[in-house]
Design a protein around this nucleic acid. Sequence first.
DNA 1: GTGTTACCGAGACCGGTAGTCTCGTCAAGA
DNA 2: TCTTGACGAGACTACCGGTCTCGGTAACAC
Lengths: 193, 193
Amino acid sequence: MHDSNEPRPHTGRRRNEAARRAILDAALELLADADGAPVSVETIARAAGVGKQTLYRWWPSKGAVLLDALTDRAAQDVPAPDTGDLREDLRELAIATFEASQRRPSAPALRTLVREAARDTHLAELMRVFTQSRRAAVRAVLERGRERGELPADRDLDLLVDQFYGFFWYRFLLGHAPLDAAAAEALTESLLG
Amino acid sequence: MHDSNEPRPHTGRRRNEAARRAILDAALELLADADGAPVSVETIARAAGVGKQTLYRWWPSKGAVLLDALTDRAAQDVPAPDTGDLREDLRELAIATFEASQRRPSAPALRTLVREAARDTHLAELMRVFTQSRRAAVRAVLERGRERGELPADRDLDLLVDQFYGFFWYRFLLGHAPLDAAAAEALTESLLG
DNA sequence: GTGTTACCGAGACCGGTAGTCTCGTCAAGA
DNA sequence: TCTTGACGAGACTACCGGTCTCGGTAACAC
């Protein structure tokens, strides 16, 4: 038996940081270039100049690598505007979200990632965690507004959050209509009446 | 050279209608049972008691079979309410859409189909055509309402349509919140203020 | 330095998939 | 009866995610 509280000191060769970076960089770049098309593990490993096993030694699945590649670069901090005005906060959040969805390489990479998540339940679960904080940010803005009386007390906030992100993902994934500042403005006005 | 205007009369064995039905029925059932998980061509053929080649003789790809299986059974007629009242029409459309999204086997089959379409560009294109008529129905209702003056003349109808279907697909695919009559009611109120 | 350990790149391998090809069979019409 | 083309069955190719094994090598203990 091994006492896990007092682990044996590490010996042997250490993890190659350059390989980790090369994998994440290659994954993000391929993810972005694919823009929806699947990205294979073989391709990532080859592009990173790395063996497949090195990849599977540090990540449990392809999905985990892809998500890591995205979150590693994508701005992790979610904007949390609090100007004291609901309309202003929501507009700011919408503009920031929409604007971020146009940036390379994160945006096309995210599109590919969602496509992959449609088939990969493990990745789908990770994505849920990833999006949760963004949903929470919108909800917090709405809650503050409601406390200030800018929203009826009985207004269903979950409905509003789903309207916000439903609209966003719909346009982001289909790409049939713009996600620009004007759209952000119009969505905000529509949600708050 | 063969004159395509006067094709040689058909000879040989005819297409087996029973096989066609068996394939579509098996595909829909498997699609519904999978509820998101992929459905393989092998499985469909086996369940239908049919050779793979029979399937590929009549459909160009797996995606085409799946879509055909869905549209074959799913109510093709899109409701087009026209009561003379925008709010009433939109509510009716929302309730009908949400209610249809709960029915078996079409609903779970549709969920699976969308997942497949995320990887299959051919299927994605077919899906676009499939959803176009539904979008048009919502837009028609909105246009009639605008003509009656129930909506400001400068209101962006594409935005409203995307809000409607964005919300629907978001909840349908994530399944984190209900798509019931109350949600339909609330969405309608939210869209029309 | 020497030995041990664990990471490294490379690639064979497994199971599963979409789609093609071929086989012998069978039904519809000439 | 003969030609034609659909039929069920299944071998086959190409590709993918993931596992396994190999010889080599960097980091550390001694």
